[in-house]
Amino acid sequence: MAQKPSKKGFKVIAFYTAKNDQAHISYVHEANQWLPKAAKKYHFSYDSTANWNNMNPEFLAKYQVVIFLDTRPETPAQRLAFENYMKHGGSWIGFHFSAFALANSSYPDNWDWYHNDFLASGAYGSNTWRPTSAILKVENDKHPVTFQLPKIFKSSPNEWYRWQNDLRKNPDIDILLAIDSSSFPLGTGPKSHEIWHNGYYPVVWSNKKYKMVYVNMGHNDIDYDHKTNKDLSQTFENEIQNKMIINALLWLGERR
């Protein structure tokens, strides 16, 4: 289904909703400013849409890389179109909330292929709070996504997710970045369960059965305390993290 990149470069389409949580909305707006500049610099094209009905075979066939900036397809037709796109050679990168699924929420755990096969993470488990930077470690320095990254680096502030499934037990999953133990305690609370003191937490991974990358980053820090909703951090202000994202896009677009 997915076309091969032309000599002018590959084509990227980003889907987003930007309606839930000011921190996610802030990130989507930031991404839609940063990614077109990256596209110009690295010679690919970038389009974005908030119309999830564009998740259909005819529309997807125009693009080599699909991005989910915040949410996921919800209708059966949209989900089938995306699954077929990925099973027939399409590429995908998803950020942060795009992997979220929780029973009895607005984004229920009701898409088995996506959450348990494709992402393999299962449902959302918990998160840190407030959004804080973490020290990340490269788990696979042979992968194109981690090309020329330092072994350990500091991320932009983020709300970090824990998942239902242990990705280390899945032979199809290639964990690329994880939280380094030097990050602990991670989070500031105020609730005790929002502060992590130990454990293993993958934050970037790929599924060997598909051309895909999931990136847990995508939640800016926001001034909720004073009710100003002012941005307190930017995801794309981190050069090392940006290099990882560019590496991922160029790999997914099959640029060598």
Rank of each mutant, 00 (worst) to 15 (best):
F44C: 06
R79Y: 07
Q64K: 03
N53K: 14
E74H: 08
W34D: 06
W251A: 08
D221P: 03
F236V: 06
Q234C: 03
H29S: 13
A103I: 09
R72G: 00
E159P: 08
P157T: 07
W34Q: 10
D109K: 13
K227H: 12
M86G: 08
D174P: 00
A14S: 10
E83F: 04
M1Q: 14
K137I: 08
P36N: 06
P150D: 11
S192I: 11
D174W: 07
K7G: 07
G122F: 10
H24Q: 12
H219G: 00
L80I: 09
F59R: 10
Q78N: 09
K87T: 11
N56C: 09
A38R: 10
S105R: 02
G189Y: 06
R72W: 14
Y16N: 03
M244D: 01
H115M: 14
I195Q: 06
K243I: 05
D221C: 04
Q3L: 14
R256Y: 03
F15V: 02
K8P: 00
S91V: 11
W52N: 11
P171D: 14
W111V: 10
L232N: 03
D223F: 03
F236A: 09
I179W: 11
Y201I: 14
D141W: 00
A39C: 04
F59P: 01
Y124T: 06
P190N: 13
K169I: 01
S26I: 01
V213A: 12
Y161R: 01
V66L: 11
I152L: 15
F118M: 11
S156R: 04
N54W: 06
N20S: 12
H197N: 14
N56K: 11
R255E: 13
Y201H: 13
W196G: 05
D141T: 05
T75K: 12
P36I: 05
V203R: 09
I195G: 01
S182W: 03
T128P: 02
L167R: 12
M1E: 14
M244I: 03
L177R: 13
S206V: 08
Q234K: 14
V215R: 03
S106L: 15
V28Y: 02
N32T: 12
L149A: 07
G187Q: 07
P144S: 04
S6L: 14
K137P: 06
I245L: 11
V213L: 13
Y224K: 07
Y27P: 02
Q241T: 00
L35H: 02
E58N: 13
P76T: 05
Y214E: 11
I13C: 09
A77N: 07
P202R: 12
A103C: 01
F44T: 08
A134H: 05
D117C: 06
H24C: 00
R162V: 05
N127E: 14
N198R: 14
M212L: 15
S192W: 04
K37Q: 15
T49V: 04
L186D: 07
